[in-house]
Nucleic acid binder design. Sequence first.
DNA 1: TTCCAGGAGGGGG
DNA 2: CCCCCTCATGGA
Length: 279
Amino acid sequence: MKYRIVDNGIEILEKNDFCPKHIFECGQIFSWEEQDSIFKVTSGNCFAKIYACNSGYFIETKFCEYFENFFDLKTDYSKIKKQLKEFDFLNNAINFGAGIRILKQDKLETIISFIISANNNIKRIKSTLAKLRHDYGEDNGEYFSFPTLDVLKEINEQYFKKIGAGYRAPYLCKTIKMLYDNSGLLHDELSSSKTLLTKLVALSGVGPKVADCVALFAYDKKDVFPVDTWIEKVFHDLFPFAKNRVQMRELLLEKFGDLSGFAQQYLFYFKRETGENII
DNA sequence: TTCCAGGAGGGGG
DNA sequence: CCCCCTCATGGA
């Protein structure tokens, strides 16, 4: 995909493999809002606005290098989509979310966000995280950054409950302490997916599904397949027999291999938005 | 009123 | 290993 870094942002010069609506609505990130076709997104302590411009989009930001990596601009999504379309039953889902890109998000923020996401709905997840940034993040005028680990460590369970985290509040406090005592996981760039998942699942409030999401959305792991309630529905469309989530994950990983993470996002977005049968 | 939401922890068999 | 129950919360 053609793009160009300029003084105050990044010019996306074509629309085939980049659509902010698809990227943000597909459930991989909660720290964004859309108003009058302008998308505002925060990640860690960075911020950008994205809007249509000429024949593409403009990412207005002073954090160009961060968002070049964040939006995974160096990866060829046309090639990925072409490979995945060899699975006939994926064509509808890929065409529906053709502008999806898997983001490379802040690790700490992604762990906290997806602990909150468990058995929750996206609207309240976004609300809870926005309150957290507002109350404990740095005020940068147009946006609040995600709080640092030092700041998070001082937050008690009552506060997390107050902003809507519910029974996940103690999980958050425990995990924050674990990360504070051993922050190596937040800088892990080398572990294999299997090793990384083992480390993530050891955190409080992180089970197999949350670990897969964190690995996919923050650690650049694509050989994972988060199975949530929507993917369960997809699975029942594809296979006329019931399995538990572990078995579903194994079958889907076997089918999609190193492209599993991409396939998962197209399927999740399509199913959640349309409710239509995959086949 | 019951069910559901990007599930996980804990206990028992 | 597996199955079952509970967890906070608000919208449908």
